[in-house]
C-alpha cells in the first residue's frame, strides 16, 4: 500500500524562537529522503513533528489525507529512530523486540535477531551496558525490522564504527527494495550516505532551502575552472556560491536552475566544467558562519 505524507506550511516556535519556519514538502512510498542540515538547523525538531511527538504551531501534517497527530491508525505506522539516552535503560534488546512485536504491525522478529547478529550487539545484555556504537546499531535494528510505512532515522550512525555503518547501509538498501517505504535519513555527514538519497531536503536557518531529486539538485551546480580573468568575466552574470584561486587559476561554483544554458556558455568560453558533490554543495549553500543569506 502506498503512503503519502504531506507537510504544509509547518512552523514551530520554541521559547519564542523560531525553530521551523514555514516548511512544506511531500513524501511517498519507495523513496529515500536525505534530510541534511548543519547542527541546530532543525532536523531533529522537524522529525519529531513528522512523528507526532510535537504539534506544530502553524500548518499541518497529513498522512494519506488524514491528520497525523494523535491518529490511532497512523501512529503505529510512523517510527522515529534517534540517539536516545539509554543511561537508565536496564532492559535488554530482547524486551524491546517483544514490545515492538506487540505494538508495530509489521515488526519482523526473526529479521531483528538476524540484524543483531550481523551488527554484533548482544540481545540479552542491558542496553545501558552497551557501547554507544552498539546502542546505535540496536536503534538501527529497531528501525529496519519494524517495517513501518514511514521510517525516520535521525543521525543513526552515532558512534558506529565504519564496518557497522557499511553493514547498515547495505541492509538499508536491501530493505528499501524488499519492503519499500518512506525512509528519511537525517545527517550532516553527507558524503558517506549521499548515494542512499533519492531526494534531498536541505534545512538551513529553520527553512527548507532545497527540495529536489538528488541528481537534479546536483545537476543545478557545476564548477568552472580557468584563468582568473576569464572566469570572472564569464561568471559575472551567474549565481556563484563559492570560489577559490590557485596560482592564477580560478575555480567558481555555479548554482543555477538554468544550468544547461550556463554550462554551455562557460564551456564555449573555453572554461573547464566539472561536477559538484552533494557534500560540497551542502557546504557551499549552508557554510560561512551563520550561513548563506
Amino acid at each position: 500500500m502506498n503512503t503519502k505524507v504531506d507537510v504544509r506550511d509547518v512552523s514551530l516556535n520554541y521559547r519564542k524562537m523560531n525553530v521551523i519556519d514555514q516548511v512544506s514538502f511531500t513524501m511517498e512510498t519507495g523513496k529515500t529522503y536525505g534530510l541534511i542540515g548543519r547542527n541546530g538547523a532543525g532536523k531533529t525538531t522537524l522529525l519529531s513533528l513528522l512523528t507526532g511527538f510535537r504539534l506544530p504551531d502553524a500548518g499541518d501534517i497529513q498522512v494519506n489525507g488524514e491528520p497525523l497527530f494523535e491518529n490511532r491508525m497512523m501512529m503505529p505506522k510512523v517510527n522515529l529512530i534517534y540517539p536516545a539516552d539509554y543511561a537508565d535503560e536496564s532492559d535488554n534488546a530482547k524486551s524491546y523486540f517483544e514490545t515492538a512485536e506487540k505494538y508495530r504491525p509489521h515488526f519482523d522478529r526473526a529479521y531483528a535477531e538476524e540484524l543483531a547478529e550481523k551488527f554484533g550487539f548482544p540481545v540479552k545484555k542491558p542496553i545501558n551496558k552497551l557501547s554507544t556504537g552498539m546502542q546505535s546499531a540496536f536503534n538501527a535494528t529497531l528501525g529496519l525490522a519494524a517495517r513501518t510505512e514511514v521510517t525516520l532515522f535521525d543521525e543513526v550512525y552515532n558512534g558506529m564504527d565504519a564496518p557497522t555503518r557499511e553493514a547498515f547501509y547495505q541492509e538499508f538498501v536491501r530493505e528499501q527494495e524488499r519492503h519499500p517505504r518512506i525512509m528519511v535519513l537525517s545527517t550532516h555527514l553527507v558524503s558517506e550516505m549521499d548515494y542512499l538519497f533519492d531526494h534531498v531536503f536541505m534545512l538551513h536557518n529553520q527553512k527548507l532551502i532545497a527540495d529536489a531529486p538528488t541528481d537534479e539538485l546536483q545537476s543545478r551546480a557545476f564548477t568552472v575552472t580557468g584563468g582568473q580573468a576569464l572566469v570572472d568575466e564569464v561568471t559575472k552574470q551567474m549565481a556563484v556560491i563559492h570560489e577559490e584561486e590557485l596560482g592564477g587559476m580560478k575555480r567558481a561554483v555555479i548554482y543555477d536552475a538554468n544550468n544547461d544554458v550556463k554550462q554551455k556558455e562557460a564551456a564555449e568560453a573555453g572554461l573547464g566544467i566539472g561536477a559538484v558533490t552533494l557534500q560540497d554543495l551542502f557546504i557551499y549553500l549552508t557554510g560561512g558562519g551563520n550561513g548563506h543569506e
Binding site: Y169, Q170, V173, Y195, L196, F197, D198, P213, T214, D215
Partner: peptide
C-alpha cells in the same frame, strides 16, 4: 542486480 551495484559503486539505485 541494482542492489549489488549500489553496494559496490556507492551510487544511488536510480542512477
Amino acid at each position: 542486480s541494482t542492489t549489488q551495484m549500489v553496494d559496490f559503486y556507492k551510487v544511488n539505485h536510480l542512477t
